[in-house]
Amino acid sequence: MNVLVTGGSGSGKSAFAEKVIHALCPSEKLYLATMLCRDRESEIRIQRHRQMRAGRHFITLDCPKQLPSAPVPRGASVLLEDLPNLLANEMYEDGHPDNLLTDLRQLAGICSNLVIVTGEIFSDGIAYDSSTQEYIRRLAHLNCTLASFFDCTVEVLCGIPVPLRGTLPFPV
């Protein structure tokens, strides 16, 4: 099953996504971590997420860009966290943002279960520089396209899951 989880900053989307993949696959599963550790703030963030995942049989693979380079075996259950980071790395760290959608489709084809955490970054009314506008447009396009073929898309608000499309086969 493919599930797209979206939400704003601090909305509880990560905790929810972790529950979903754990419900889909209680045994061993992969966590594709996209965040580059560059400062104390990201270190604290990474640490916090590690603690949240502890005891749930996650194997962490670092994958800041180039999804196909991650050794994901066929039939795996995967939590990819998160798409806004992955896109930023592909765009601003010498990556290939044009390949991202194809790479994501391929990953979805390999996995038995794939949960992707994305973000709601589209509602602050600020006109950014052209590069940031391009980033927003690309992320919006990825979100819309993934939602169109994923089984289920959920927005998390204040820690409460609100289904946008499809339904999960279990209560989370």
Binding site: G8, E120, I121, F122, S123, D124
Partner: peptide, 8 residues
């Protein structure tokens, strides 16, 4: 207000 739905 919801304030978390913009660019970081």
């Amino acid at each position: 207000d919801e304030i978390g739905c913009g660019i970081v």
